[in-house]
Design a protein around this nucleic acid. Structure first.
Lengths: 228, 228
DNA sequence: GCAAAAGTGTTGGAGATACACCCATGA
DNA sequence: TCATGGGTGTATCTCCAACACTTTTGC
């Protein structure tokens, strides 16, 4: 029995596979998710959806997510991680579509890039004020948020949401926004510095009528470490 | 533009989707994984593989995993959780096959059931002495093991590997096997009892020439809780 | 000089770790 | 009576939480 025969006899079914990406960013108003019209160019009554698309014939799943994201939002080279695979047989009305969900984190510069050239088809929404979403995309966002929240506690994932140089207050804000709670400044600083994963650049940022803040740099940009 | 047109134009590609399951059990010799010949009935030179099969046309992914497991090993009603989706385009030699990997945990009774009626096609292997596996299945097992190890620390997942009634020493053995380290008996007991998730049945098990051990019961059988 | 955010140390409590001996049983 | 695993308590340490005032700047 060769492999092809085996496939024929036990796997007559073919399905569509897509990737959908929950893109998180930090804005003035808190945690945001990037949404697009589905389908694009369908006008104002088309539902909002996650960026996403079908997986090509010889495309790695991760590449598909990256590629889709670049195509639909113009953004590449961000932190991207597989989230979960959703496969309810009735989740798509027209055909069987299984979706491999990812989530992405981008620094404020990227968030602003998208804001800077707004289109009617792609925009940021505050995560707690999103419109109704296409299919089960709200569920996917919710899962992504939970994962992000969990990872914050035992990894250095937060730095993916910050620019290369940042102040400790900015970092604390990221934690407070995602964890949804106020943190003590002194304890936070002690904890972060004890991780030994950031270093003082020696530079300062002047920013309003108050004392300038020290600028720090994450020691291993682009990499996420797991603690303990 | 209706949904079908949209599918046609942006998603001409169909792929095979399978589920593969890493079944863990505790044996005399430590952590074990259930393997089967691939394909079944192909004889002694067929490679060993994870239980798994193609997803049916209207089958939920989770159901597909459950169903496959029941069919290939005769075991149902075990703890099952999605692990990760593997989609390298060249992972299968004959066609594009994306696999949604799951892991399952079963109590010793189930482990013994399978041992009791051995077949040449399905058997347990100690996780550190597995043969070469089909395709990327070794990678899937490795990921499952890491996930299991991680979850042990922040959830009550260990109880899925034990019978309804168990001794504290048995529980400790599960932790030691998975964490790969010796634990202090007194500290372990204090920690577990502090979780307040097991109760003393009052009964004891006589078992060899030593003092009998108290039997405990997990308070929420089948359910996994997350700590903290 | 005042408003606004940056920066800084100490104390107390909870939970984890280290550690050694007696108990109940079967042979 | 001995070998085997079952069962128990205390002292210490580490980590986390609580908490308030001084500094530097722009206006």
């Amino acid at each position: 029995m060769n492999t092809l025969t085996e496939l024929r006899s036990t796997a007559p079914w073919l399905v569509h596979v897509s990737t959908d990406i929950v893109v998180f960013g930090i804005g003035h108003d808190g945690l945001r998710v990037l949404l697009r019209r589905h389908p694009p160019r369908a006008g104002a009554d088309a539902p909002w959806a996650l960026p996403g698309g079908y997986v090509g014939p010889v495309e790695h799943l991760d590449r598909s997510a990256e590629h889709t994201l670049a195509q639909q939002t113009g953004v590449d080279n961000v932190y991207l991680e597989q989230l979960y695979t959703f496969g309810r047989p009735d989740r798509h009305p027209a055909s069987r579509v299984i979706t491999v969900a990812y989530y992405a984190l981008m620094p404020p510069r990227r968030v602003e890039e998208i804001n800077a050239r707004p289109t009617p088809e792609v925009r940021w929404y505050p995560i707690d004020r999103m419109p109704d979403l296409y299919l089960d995309h709200a569920e996917i966002v919710a899962l992504g948020r939970r994962r992000l929240e969990a990872k914050l506690e035992y990894s250095t994932i937060a730095f993916q949401l910050l620019p290369t140089e940042f102040t400790l207050s900015e970092l604390q804000r990221v934690y407070e926004i995602i964890l949804y709670e106020k943190l003590d400044k002194r304890n936070f600083r002690k904890r972060i510095l004890a991780l030994d994963c950031i270093e003082d650049t020696g530079r300062k940022r002047r920013d309003g009528s108050h004392r300038p803040a020290g600028l720090y740099r994450y020691k291993s940009p682009g990499k996420v470490h797991y603690l303990k």
